[in-house]
């Protein structure tokens, strides 16, 4: 008998002050996990979209097109060839090639048919590949053309670039908005659960209060309970999001989802702060709720 009583004494640690409420906690677990799952998916999607946007932007930035206007007595092809030669020598250009007439016609044929092509003034184009590290500017190209006495318009695709960048910015804001909304929803759910918990455990809270517990002490009891719960739920939600993201990457293949939403293996680590953020939001919500309710007490 004495062995039985002495042993637990040595190992005794203060027990949790709130009883477990399996049913309520299960639903709260579930809701917080789902919210975290959605937030993590939004984060991963935002990262993928950002990478896609910057990929497109890189492609656009690495290219320019020059439309050459031949002088009197010069064929379009010679003018284009001369322009290509000139542009290839400009600093920041890796390659410049005239788009041959046949090739241009081939490109247009499906749209216009054979008949009209002969009469049509086909633009004489030079496509320029730019050094992605130090691309030549449109002004550089223009200057080089003028110096060589070639008349032409330079298009550095700046308009496309602006569009892509605007879209990428929008995606970033949407992801941030989703995060804020989800965090607020999680906070509201936890605040609600705290209020329900306080009501269900009114006896416990009253005994603590009457035994001289400060509001801070009682708030910490609820804060710990719900913070820990949200941490676990956040981990579950994040793991589920990781599984989904990996499945997308593995199953997306080359022509499916992956090119549109390119994910790297490392992107999934972006969800790792999720449990901590969830715990912080939940602890804060529980704390503020408890303190506010207690302030109404004697």
């Amino acid at each position: 008998m004495s062995v039985a009583t002495e042993d637990p004494m040595a190992r005794w640690k203060p027990a949790p002050l709130l009883p477990r409420d399996e049913e309520r906690e299960f639903s709260l677990h579930f809701v917080v996990a789902v919210l975290c799952f959605l937030a993590c998916l939004a984060a991963v999607a935002a990262i993928g979209a950002d990478r896609a946007a910057s990929g497109w932007a890189r492609d656009i930035r690495g290219e320019a097109t020059v439309q050459v206007r031949p002088k009197l007595g010069e064929t379009g092809s010679t003018a284009a060839a001369r322009a290509a030669e000139t542009l290839a020598g400009v600093k920041g250009v890796t390659e410049a090639a005239a788009l041959e007439k046949e090739k241009a016609e081939e490109l247009l044929k499906p749209w216009l048919g054979d008949a009209v092509l002969d009469d049509l003034p086909i633009p004489h184009l030079v496509t320029v590949r730019l050094d992605p590290k130090a691309p030549a500017t449109a002004a550089d190209l223009h200057r080089a053309l003028s110096a060589a006495g070639i008349d032409g318009d330079v298009d550095d695709h700046a308009r496309w670039l602006r569009d892509v960048e605007r879209a990428a910015g929008l995606v970033r804001w949407i992801a941030f908005g989703v995060f804020v909304v989800v965090a607020a929803a999680a906070g509201a759910v936890v605040a609600f659960a705290t209020r329900a918990g306080m009501a269900a455990q009114k006896d416990v809270v009253e005994v603590l209060h009457l035994s001289g517990a400060r509001d801070e002490f009682i708030a910490r009891v609820f804060q710990t309970r719900f913070g820990r719960l949200a941490f676990e739920a956040g981990a579950v939600g994040a793991l589920a999001a990781i599984v989904v993201a990996l499945a997308l990457k593995l199953l997306g293949g080359q022509n499916g989802f992956t090119p549109a939403l390119p994910l790297s293996w490392w992107d999934v680590t972006a969800v790792s702060p999720c449990p901590l953020i969830a715990a912080t939001v939940a602890a804060l919500a529980a704390r503020l709720t408890t303190l506010r309710l207690l302030r109404g007490w004697e």
């Binding site: 027990a15 477990r20 006896d203």
Partner: peptide, 13 residues
């Protein structure tokens, strides 16, 4: 507190 042992109840204050 019904969910706490006699020992924990006394330790509470």
């Amino acid at each position: 507190l019904d969910h706490l042992s006699a020992f924990d109840n006394v330790a509470l204050p």
